[in-house]
Amino acid sequence: MTARMSTTRKLFIVLTMWLPAVALIVTRSLWIAELPAELPTHWGASGPADGASAAGPFFGWMLGISLAAAIVGTVMIVAPVRGKWVQRATAGVIGAVAFFPLAMWITSAAPSRGVTDPYTVELGAWFALLMLAPAYGLLPLVIYPKIDNPAIEVVADAEVEPVELEPGEVASWSRTIVSKMFVIMTILLTVLQAAIYIPVIMTEGISHLHWSVIVAVLVVLLVAAFCVYRVSVDWRGLRVTSGLFGFPIKRLSPAQIVKAEVAEINPGEWGGWGYRIAPGRSAIVLKQGPGFVVTQANGKLFAVTLERPEEPVSVMQGLLDASKRRGDGKGLGPNATSELGE
């Protein structure tokens, strides 16, 4: 059964959402005498700030965003109107949203203390504080009680017959699947980074690039890595690799697989879209709809959304049956191969 959330636990989760707003007020009260009338709010690819905003309105916006996130989060925790998994995930997101304005405020205000000209302030290591916002969002998730995994909706009318294999024969299946969302994100990030850094290179030269360009390139490459997936099923088990860079994302040997089923994949039950990891389950969710779910020997689940999931499930079931007949559960040798898929 799902653990019922106690009042004390609710209060702690709500507290994590209000702490950033409190920290905003406290830091402004402590620093107000040292801050200039304007605060730096934008930095180019290198050097000091190239944009500034009036300190009062900037603080007001940051506090308003943080307070709004805290209020929404409090309502969701005290009077939830959605399922437990959605509520849990949203609590984490709201925690990160509430912290982000605090990170922006400190990044701008902390290095500006005692400075009269905001355009002389350099970003420096304070930029790293903005990276902590997602980590802060983990606090509500840690405090939230452990909940049961929602049941998998197995497709009842999907009659899958295992591939029949003769002794010494195996089968293989493979397909390349593309995440349109991550492709669009990669293109947008590339265009954005180009718009930021190319003018600097053209006017000042590549030597003037800020160290943040390294972070920007790594972010683009990380997102691009999840644009294309190669899913394969053969005598080695189930393998998922990055279609662009080739590194493994998921590997399951036949000994690690208990069963494979055709199912309807609901992103909300797996933590959203993309490569998702949740307690007791992980998945590659590119859309809502058909896919297959693999139950592992340790009880964990792994799912992939794709068209015609009956094909890989049939091959997996056939390979598992053949492995059981062998009695070793270690997989099969590639003596003879029947290829399926694309």
Rank of each mutant, 00 (worst) to 15 (best):
M1P: 12
T2I: 07
T2S: 11
R4V: 15
M5N: 03
K10F: 13
F12T: 13
V14A: 13
T16C: 12
M17I: 13
A21Y: 02
A21N: 03
A23G: 05
V26T: 14
S29G: 15
L30N: 11
L30S: 14
W31M: 15
W31S: 15
A33F: 10
L35A: 09
P36M: 08
E38N: 09
L39S: 03
P40F: 08
G44C: 06
S46V: 06
P48G: 07
S53N: 06
G60I: 13
G60S: 08
M62R: 06
L63N: 03
I65P: 01
S66Q: 10
L67R: 08
A69N: 04
I71N: 05
I71H: 03
G73F: 12
G73P: 05
T74W: 10
V75Q: 10
V81Y: 12
A96T: 05
V97G: 00
F99V: 11
F100M: 11
A103Q: 05
A103S: 13
A103R: 10
I106S: 10
I106D: 12
S112N: 02
S112D: 02
P118L: 07
T120A: 09
G124L: 07
W126C: 01
L129S: 05
P134D: 05
A135H: 04
Y136D: 10
Y136V: 14
G137R: 02
L138M: 14
I143A: 11
I143K: 00
Y144I: 01
Y144T: 05
P145Y: 10
N149H: 03
V154K: 07
V160D: 06
G168V: 02
G168Y: 04
E169S: 02
E169Q: 08
V170Y: 01
A171Q: 05
S172A: 12
S174M: 04
V183S: 01
V183E: 00
I184R: 00
M185W: 01
I187W: 00
T190K: 02
V191R: 01
A194I: 15
A195K: 06
Y197K: 03
Y197C: 02
P199G: 10
V200G: 04
G205D: 06
I206E: 07
I206A: 13
S207R: 05
S212V: 15
I214M: 10
V220C: 11
L221M: 14
L221T: 14
L222Q: 09
A225H: 09
F226E: 09
R230S: 07
V233D: 08
D234A: 06
G243W: 10
G246R: 06
F247A: 00
A255P: 09
Q256K: 14
Q256T: 10
A263R: 03
I265T: 02
P267E: 02
G268C: 10
E269S: 14
R276N: 08
S282F: 13
S282P: 08
V285D: 07
L286P: 07
G289N: 08
G291T: 07
V294Y: 04
A297K: 14
F302P: 03
T305C: 03
L306W: 05
P309K: 00
P312C: 13
V313P: 05
S314L: 09
Q317R: 15
L320Y: 00
G329A: 00
P334V: 08
N335F: 11
S338F: 01
L340R: 11
G341T: 06
E342C: 00
